[in-house]
Structure formats: structure tokens, C-alpha cells
């Protein structure tokens, strides 16, 4: 359950960072922070999906 809240926190943090960086004129850095946030979220969700697939594999005897 906390995974969903963690992803939400990262998303909002990245959004705020973006706005601040854009206002201070550093567009490329804000682009990088967006990518970094996206990759972190992607890795976290991939672990969750891996757990889901292994559960299905064991349960339905793939």
C-alpha cells in the first residue's frame, strides 16, 4: 500500500521541482529530474510486477 503513496510523493515532488527549475530558467535540469523520477518509479513498479508474475506462475502452475 505504501508503494502507491511513495509513487505519488515522487510524482508531486518531481512536478514541484520542475516548476521551480523552469521558473529559474534551467529547463534542461528540470527535464533530467523528470527522467530521474520516472526511472525510480519504473524500477519500483517493476519489482511489484515481478512479484505479481511469480505469484501467478506458482498459483496457476505455469
Amino acid at each position: 500500500m505504501d508503494l502507491i503513496f511513495r509513487i505519488a510523493a515522487i510524482g508531486i515532488l518531481v512536478a514541484v521541482l520542475n516548476i521551480v527549475l523552469n521558473k529559474s530558467g534551467k529547463e534542461e535540469i528540470s527535464m533530467l529530474t523528470t527522467l530521474a523520477g520516472l526511472i525510480i518509479v519504473l524500477l519500483m513498479v517493476l519489482q511489484e510486477i515481478n512479484r505479481l508474475f511469480s505469484t501467478i506462475r506458482t498459483m496457476f502452475s505455469f
Binding site: 500500500m1 508503494l3 502507491i4 509513487i7 505519488a8 515522487i10 510524482g11 508531486i12 518531481v14 512536478a15 523528470t34 523520477g37 520516472l38 518509479v41 519504473l42 519500483m44 513498479v45 511489484e48 510486477i49 512479484r51 505479481l52
Partner: peptide
């Protein structure tokens, strides 16, 4: 909330919620 700020993160929250 996320979709208004960062549309690309919405997909990941959906995935996380679905798997959970």
C-alpha cells in the same frame, strides 16, 4: 492528482495499484 501535473506517472500508479 498526478495526471494533471505529470501525465506519464499515472500509468505507473495504475500498474502499482492493479498488482497490489
Amino acid at each position: 492528482v498526478l495526471k494533471s501535473q505529470k501525465p506519464e506517472l499515472g500509468l505507473w500508479v495504475t500498474l502499482a495499484a492493479g498488482t497490489f
